[in-house]
Design a binder for these strands. Structure first.
Lengths: 331, 331
DNA sequence: GTGAAAGCGCTAACAG
DNA sequence: CTGTTAGCGCTTTCAC
């Protein structure tokens, strides 16, 4: 009833028992006489008692909160991962603490405070962490797992897809359809995945015995539409236009397609385009995008299970989840 | 250095002072002798001491955490609002507790536990709350504010746009371009905004002296592409095709445009379409969508300020933020 | 099966 | 300016 905080002592008093007994009843931690239990339960109900989480946490020094470090909330890719995280935290009775992982990490007032201050039991990091950075030094000794972004050489448990193989699959698909002059539109490689996807492209081409013309490879600054547009422009200026493009993100792919069309080229007839990510948008865009899909929710869920296992004292192995090529109209 | 938790007593001991003095230094709460301060700071640095948030919270019974109830993380609309929330919580030194607000609220194990258990100081609710529901009974006595979803008749502080006026503006734009037979594609009206946008359409039409043919109004079950597609199909079967459509969401608008085009109609030449939301997608889609934009980030930020003010004992007034019509190609 | 009491880490009131 | 002490709300020995 009351919105006011009612402490366990009030319940004990009303029920005519000790606080220890109340605690036993609400936690089912030890056998309690049925009659006593009823008295306690009645008192709990009457007062609308809810155990204060803070008192409990202080005592047990376990917060049952997990911190999620997200590079960008508004990016649906991360949003879906968070959804996956949430699905398992909810089941396990954990709460989710969300923090923005800013590009430039300021010493001191960081999102990691929550963890340092023992507000959270562990961290799930979706952000890229430079091994040389302040952030890495801060986070290294903490119980954390990486999701989607894998740190090379780091021994931290992580879950992600095999970006290299996914790129190989995408390019192989193009190869199988008879393409030879396959271009790559990639992004600057601060993010490891960009690097890995690039290598996948290179390896698939090499395995097919195709010499890659360096001008087929366009590196965009970021990965938005405008960048894709520009990269496609560069491709368009080539004497022999590639017959297919693998873009390392759907946004890049869409920007490129727009450029091709503006130049009077048909997709996929004149030039086929494969993207990466399977954004909701890629289904609606015309032509609908052929693209590589990642299991985002699963990525988040597994990362969470990994962290929970780690917190439980286990030493779980990192996980690589399956990707899939979604074939639509653009290639 | 040590990742192990070091208590304030350890710092006091090392510095040769009392815990009270340590507390004063780290909180700057009372003047401390410069020399003493230095000793304490040295000890803090040496031990890598970080004040345990839980102890502090228990003592001050203020968690500096805010709970955000989100209907759907993966929906970019909510994601951007959360971004706005985060921007102010970060500035004010609050943490963000994120919870999914499920459609069907199960009694007991709810996301509101966090609040009942005093884990959070207040709630920002982005979800629709039926005044008759369990959830409403639960949340009513708590410190909360509504964001984007406004409860009719409820006295809870809220921030949102004027959906009615926004719809009037959209329809008026169409009217100004000479359209008369303007159709409405709306969604089932569990959400108040759908109802308000519908009324805006009706009022704008009435004010223009145009009798609305009931068949112009198509009500979709949900608000996804397929629904827009279906609604457009119904419109297409009319003897006199409307010359314009106002769709209460961009997804509906895009679904409709696809249907029109499939039927050989040009947008906007044969039929103009205005959407609502200004999703990222609406800019990329072809034709680029003319649509109503909401200031999502601002919505989140203001809601947070409202809550914070409320927690500070003030009684802030609800806010209505400005929307804007973004004119592109579809109308 | 139950109660008394200690103590998690911290801040603030009170003395000095 | 600094130290002593109480106590926030809870769980968990340890007795009985």
């Amino acid at each position: 009833m009351a919105s006011e905080s009612v402490p366990i002592t009030a319940v004990a008093e009303l029920a005519g028992v000790s606080v220890a007994t109340v605690s036993r009843v609400i936690n089912n931690s030890k056998p309690v006489n049925a009659e006593t239990r009823e008295k306690v339960e009645a008192a709990v109900a009457q007062l609308g008692y809810r155990a204060n989480a803070i008192g409990r946490i202080l005592r047990k020094s376990e917060t049952r909160m997990l911190l999620v470090l997200v590079p960008d909330f508004a990016n649906p890719y991360y949003a879906e991962i968070v959804q996956g995280v949430e699905s398992v935290t909810r089941d396990r009775g954990y709460h989710l603490l969300l923090a923005d992982a800013p590009q430039r990490w300021e010493r001191g007032a960081t999102a990691l405070d929550a963890l340092h201050n023992r507000l959270a039991d562990g961290v799930i990091c979706l952000a890229h962490i430079d091994p040389e950075s302040e952030l890495h030094k801060e986070i290294a000794p903490l119980p954390w797992v990486a999701c989607s972004e894998v740190m090379p050489g780091s021994k931290v448990p992580h879950v992600s897809i095999d970006h290299h193989q996914a790129a190989v699959d995408a390019v192989q698909y193009l190869l199988n359809r008879g393409h030879q002059r396959i271009a790559l539109i990639t992004a600057e490689e601060e993010f490891l995945w960009a690097q890995q996807r690039r290598q996948g492209y290179l390896d698939a081409m090499a395995r097919a015995g195709i010499a890659v013309d360096p001008r087929w490879i366009q590196t965009a600054r970021k990965a938005d539409y405008a960048d894709g547009h520009m990269a496609a422009g560069a491709l368009l200026s080539l004497a022999a236009l590639p017959t297919a493009v693998f873009a390392v993100s759907d946004t890049l792919a869409i920007g490129a397609i727009k450029a091709f069309r503006r130049a009077g080229r048909q997709v996929p007839q004149d030039i086929a385009v494969v993207g990466f990510d399977n954004l909701p948008l890629s289904e609606v865009f015309e032509p609908a995008l052929t693209t590589v899909a990642q299991p985002m929710r699963e990525l988040g869920a597994q990362a969470t299970r990994l962290l929970l296992a780690r917190l439980a004292g286990e030493t779980p192995a990192s996980l690589t989840l399956a990707h899939s090529l979604v074939v639509r109209e653009s290639a």
